[in-house]
Design a protein around this nucleic acid. Sequence first.
DNA 1: GTCTATAGACGGATAGAC
DNA 2: GTCTATCCGTCTATAGAC
Lengths: 202, 202
Amino acid sequence: MTGTKDRILAAGAELFRHGGYAGTGMKQIVEKAGAPFGSVYHFFPGGKEQLGEEVVRTSGMQYAQLFEVFIAPSPDLITGIETFFAGAVTTLLDTDYVEGCPIATVALEAATTNEPLRRATADVFEAWTKAGTKGFSAFGLPEEHARTLTLALVTSLEGAFVLCRSMRTTEPMAVAGAAVVDVARRLLAELGDDGKRRPEDS
Amino acid sequence: MTGTKDRILAAGAELFRHGGYAGTGMKQIVEKAGAPFGSVYHFFPGGKEQLGEEVVRTSGMQYAQLFEVFIAPSPDLITGIETFFAGAVTTLLDTDYVEGCPIATVALEAATTNEPLRRATADVFEAWTKAGTKGFSAFGLPEEHARTLTLALVTSLEGAFVLCRSMRTTEPMAVAGAAVVDVARRLLAELGDDGKRRPEDS
DNA sequence: GTCTATAGACGGATAGAC
DNA sequence: GTCTATCCGTCTATAGAC
């Protein structure tokens, strides 16, 4: 059985993702969560800001798993990237361009207007970068290169979500995936590597 | 002498860029523009939605010129891209990570909540894509490749703005620029071209 | 036609009943 | 400790004075 706090966090995550932080009301959130209004201040005494922060951290950290799900099981680094972006395309089409990044909207809103909230989004992006760096290192990339490749992946993905959801096409996402593959090929070429997983890292 | 409507549009552009569409009030806008409150409904009878739409279109179209300014005068395509992203890094540092894309925040907010506003952002992105495609075509790239390269540039740029402004580092922007260069190199290699401007196109 | 004062709705937050 | 009724500020939008 899911607790009330979890339901509020889940409702907040969905509403913030769609309508943004400023565009979403507390009453909207508790209504969607099926909770009485007062309970939100019981679980989040810091009010909307605390709720926003916790929503960003929890929903953001859940998405870090996507690196494990899509890239880690792949036979080589390139197909891992291609699978990852194919998944993003599927998500866009299946949800009619509703589901994108869970925190990008809030990140842009908060960047210069709400320091604690900005910090939360930054922590999530840093966690994603760490997770991706670890995942790509398993394919034999030195840590610095693995970090570069992860940043290329996340930036391309985020930007593609912006364009795809605005223009309602998956074309930018396909281009973005191909761009990250180009980066991976360049980094592998610098090493003289083939991108296959190394036995000692399995 | 700048008219009142232009001042309102300029103030709206700056405030929407920082605080987003939902997070910015009409009173804030007219105050910053130094205009009386009623004048906003005189110039924008459609209210906030019409104002948002016109802000997105005017400020978005102004940014299309950046392709001409940074990329067109370059001796070759690769240095054009590098100059473009170096400019983005300078902007981030000079403005302490305040200035990013003028419409990305609104694009994400409006994607699933405000159809006319989403449309305006989509039209701007399409205009940028057209401008970039034309610009890259001048370097001898076939139109389809030039469009692909432009989409790679815009997606990488947008995503890098999200991460840079959230994390307060320019690292993602540097990685994004290098990624777009990788895409350009791949497209040029497919053509056996050197990326220099063609005499007949100058 | 420019501007002010206000309406009407909704925002976040809280006090207090149970 | 759970929930409801309400407060006060701010929002968009408008009516009407000048």
